[in-house]
């Protein structure tokens, strides 16, 4: 459906970033839920998997993050980790969006014969 390979790549990237963003907001929402374990996706492995699979949309697999300090109620959400990741995904999303925009501009300039 994408017209250029770069658009396709950016689309996969944005999909993965928003999936991760959803997990981070879920972690933040469950900061007071007893027994909740922090969830995350292995971003690089998932991106590689998507690219190896020739860009076919694949549902990312989430897993509990090991090595986090657990509170007595069994919850191991780390506020600093989630805040940092939230900022990180926000920036990554911005990168993806900018790539899409510049690609569309490139297409438009080709349509306008570089005028």
């Amino acid at each position: 459906m994408s017209s250029t390979p770069i658009l396709h790549l950016a689309q996969d990237f944005l999909g993965l970033v928003s999936a991760r963003h959803q997990l981070i907001t879920a972690n933040m929402a469950n900061i007071d839920t007893p027994g909740y374990r922090t969830q995350d996706i292995d971003f690089h492995a998932e991106l590689k998997r998507t690219l190896d699979n020739n860009g076919a949309a694949m549902a990312p697999v989430s897993h509990s993050v090991p090595g986090l300090l657990q509170r007595p109620d069994g919850n191991d959400v780390n506020l600093d980790r989630e805040s940092l990741l939230l900022a990180e995904t926000q920036m990554q999303y911005q990168i993806g969006v900018q790539v899409v925009r510049s690609e569309f501009h490139r297409l438009l300039s080709a349509i306008n014969e570089g005028k």
């Binding site: 963003h21 907001t25 805040s83 939230l86």
Partner: peptide
């Protein structure tokens, strides 16, 4: 915390 997550989204 959750309000700032809303702002990010």
């Amino acid at each position: 915390l959750n309000a700032s997550a809303v702002a990010a989204s």
